[in-house]
């Protein structure tokens, strides 16, 4: 490891354990005598929303508490958020990028639209096989270690054992498979793509203080501009032929994301549906099924 501070950003959804990733690795690095810092992003986002966590690791004391804006390494735990601009925001040239995906490496590179040193792993599949839940954090830690070699797998094992006293075995297994099965570009086989212009997130233009409303009043209903569809990892698919137009799904949706089509049946508003599955569960004719969201 070089003498510099390595900055790592983790992406996932609230509730998927991104913060746990950063914490376990920080603790493991500290246990090895290194210096590390992990921090969650302190936002109001709730479970399901895309969130990030931050990790710094160094051989020397870290005198830096500002946010990580130009990461050396990015790890994405959830395949359905790969296309979000936040994931590639500010990323360094030829940074290491590890994605949980079942897509081909070349395809992911194209989707990302930036020239990174890419690694792919189908962590969801591994987690489902071993942990029986799509919680990919420990699998992704394995891939991270393989790609970066910053901490030792042994030290992370220790941390996992302390953190998950009852189910550490499956988590360690998942980590090892994440380590073994990572597919990583090497200098020899690096694919170079034409970078997309919008690959890097443009700084949103925020209003100047004079432009804020007096007393910070807000326009009614303006939250509709925020599309919560990106929170979804499962998607309700409706078989309209079985729909009896009862509207129960519409009544129970906390996100008012079901609407009536001209023929009277109900469909999902994918801009806002968070994929909670209530509609599918409550539909009296079982005409809604929750399916894996496509990347």
């Amino acid at each position: 490891m070089k003498e510099k501070i390595i900055e790592i950003r983790w992406h996932g959804r609230g509730g998927q354990g991104v913060v746990t990733c950063a914490e376990l690795l920080a603790k493991a690095a500290i246990a090895e005598g290194k210096y590390a810092q992990s921090a969650p992003s302190f936002g109001p986002e709730r479970r399901g929303a895309p969130v990030a966590a931050f990790l710094r690791i160094s051989n020397k004391p870290i005198y830096l508490r500002s946010q990580i804006t130009h990461p050396d390494i990015v790890v994405v735990l959830d395949p359905t958020i790969l296309t979000l601009p936040d994931v590639t925001a500010g990323i360094k040239k030829n940074a290491i990028f590890i994605a949980n995906t079942n897509k081909l490496l070349e395809d992911v590179k194209y989707i990302l639209g930036v020239n990174v040193n890419l690694g792919v792993i189908d962590a969801t599949k591994i987690a489902l096989e071993i942990i029986r839940r799509p919680i990919t954090n420990t699998t992704m830690i394995g891939s991270f270690i393989r790609a970066t070699n910053i901490v030792k797998i042994e030290s992370v094992k220790q941390e996992i054992m302390t953190r998950f006293p009852t189910n550490y075995e499956t988590n360690i297994k998942a980590m090892i498979r994440g380590y073994d099965e990572l597919e990583m570009e090497t200098d020899a086989n690096r694919t170079v793509i034409k970078e997309k212009k919008d690959g890097k997130k443009a700084m949103p233009k925020l209003p100047k203080w004079r432009e804020l409303t007096i007393g910070l009043t807000t326009k009614a209903g303006s939250a509709q501009a925020y599309k919560t569809g990106s929170w979804r990892s499962l998607v309700p698919v409706t078989d309209a032929t079985k729909c009896i137009k009862c509207g129960i799904c519409w009544v129970y949706c906390p996100d008012s994301a079901r609407y009536q089509t001209p023929d009277g049946t109900y469909e999902t508003n994918f801009d806002y549906c968070k994929g909670c599955g209530i509609c599918a569960r409550e539909c009296p004719t079982h005409c809604i099924t929750m399916q894996e969201e496509k990347e």
Binding site: E45, R46, T228, W231, Y272
Partner: peptide, 23 residues
């Protein structure tokens, strides 16, 4: 059947709110 007929269609707590899934 057809509950929507009985319920006000107007949405005054609009989607785009940041509540957890299934809140």
């Amino acid at each position: 059947v057809y509950v929507p007929k009985l319920i006000n269609k107007q949405e005054d707590f609009v989607h785009g709110h940041r509540a957890c899934q299934g809140c």
